[in-house]
Amino acid sequence: MSDSSDEEISQQKWVFYKDRPDWKDVEPIPQDDGEEPVVTIAYSKEFTDVYDYFRGILKTQEKSERALQLTKDAANLNPANYTVWQYRRDIIKALKKDLREELEYIRQTIRKHSKNYQVWHHRKVLVEWLNDGSEELEFTKSILETDDKNYHAWQHRQWAMKTFKLYEGELDYVDSLLQTDIRNNSAWNQRYFVVNNTTGFTDVVLSNEIDYTLNKINIAKENESAWNYLRGLLLHDKEGLSKNQKVVKFCEDLYNSGNRSAFLLALLVDMCDEEITQGSGDVLLARQKGIDLCKELASNYDTIRCKYWEYMANTLEKKGTGTDEACTSSTAN
C-alpha cells in the first residue's frame, strides 16, 4: 500500500521542521481527528512533523522557496499524496520556477515510484507546460527497461507520441522489445497503436503484419498475445477471419504437424463458426470439425475453461440446425 521512501531523509541528519528556526513563524496543524498520534517508530515522527507543517502552509497558502522544499520532503515520504503534488505545482507557477529543473526532479522520483499515478501526472503537466515532448520517448524507454509492462509508462508514452507526433522508429523499438520478450502484451498492443495511428491497416500493411505475427507464433506457439494480435489484424481483413489463405494454411499446417496449442484450436473453432454463419463452403463439415475441436479443448487441451468450450460446441450445434439462440445477446432487466 505504501510505496513511500524515506531513505533519503534517514540518510542525512534530519532536523525536524519544529526545530528549525526559519520555520518558527508557521503554525503546524496536526492530523485530522485532532488526536495526537502515538508514534513509536523514528520515521513516523518525521512523517508527522513534515505533514503538520505541510498542512500549516496549505492553510496560509504560503508559496515560497521553503514551502517548495517542504513539498519535496512531503512527496518523498508519500508520493501518492495528490494534494502535495497539486500544491507543489501551484508554488512552481507562482514562483515561475525553472520547469526543466522540475522535469529532472520528477524523472528521479518516477524512477523510484514508477507505479504511482501522481508522479506520472506531474510529469505530464510539466511536459504540457513546456510544450516539448522530445525527452519523453527516451525517458519512458528507461522505465520500461526495468518493467516492460508498466502501464503508466506505456500510457505516458502513447500520450506523448500522439500529442507531439513521435511515431518514427517506434515499430523498431516494439520489435526490439518483442525480441527480448515475445510474450510482452504491452508491446503487441503498442504495435497496434502505431500501425493504427500511422499507415492504418491497408492491404499491404496487413499482409506484412500477418507475416510478422505468424513468424512470431512459429517461435512461441503458446503465446496468447501474438494470437490475439493476429485476430486483431484479421478484423481488418474484408474477407473475415476464415478467408485469409495465408493464415488458414498456417493454422492447418500447424495443426497437422501435431501442435495442439489452445490458441490455435480456438482460432480454428472461430473460423468454423464464421464459415457456418456465412453459409460458405461445406457447412456440415465445418460444424462437425468445430464441435470436435471444442470437445478436444474441453477434455484435453484447455480443461480449466471446459465450460466455455461446451458452450461453443453447443452454439455451433444449434447454428448448423438453424436455431442459433445461443449466439444472440439477449439482455435481462
Binding site: S2, D32, D33, E35, Y43, S44, T48
Partner: peptide
Amino acid sequence: EDNYEFAITDYL
C-alpha cells in the same frame, strides 16, 4: 489511529 500505517494512508 495511533498506528503509523494509518497515519500515512490518509491520502486514501
